[in-house]
Amino acid sequence: MLEHQLIQSTGFRNFGPVGAREGFAIRIRIPNYHGTRLSQLDGFDVTVDGVYYDHEINRFGIRDEVYTMAEMREETTARWGLAEWGEILVDKPGGLEPGVHKIEVLARIRYSYFPPDVHIFPMHAERYGTICIA
């Protein structure tokens, strides 16, 4: 099962070849009370140790697929279930140092049943997470 909070402990990791890491991943549960089409998400702003990574650039992985922001905005078939995790993929050559990091995520979820001017609803979560392997 998932962890209770949005940002999961497990899955916080570097990706890319060891010695030439390309970035890091943050595993999250869906920032919503129900599953949705991927097009109902408008990306994730990430801040780690005070460094900001914009939602337009971060990618999203679920199951065996990775989506750019542009692809996710048009993805009306693939869905994210309530009990599934996804991961935010953040480019950062070299990755993160092993150890504890302060993670902030601002998930931008779209609700058709919210008024148009606030229909992209920000959901903020923060916590400490640990990178185990360089």
Binding site: H34, T36, R37, S39, Q40, D42, R73, E74, T76, R110, S112, Y113, P116, H119
Partner: peptide, 12 residues
């Protein structure tokens, strides 16, 4: 059963 009609299917 609760459901949703995703009226704003994409941003476009």
């Amino acid at each position: 059963m609760c459901s949703w009609v995703d009226m704003r299917i994409t941003l476009q």
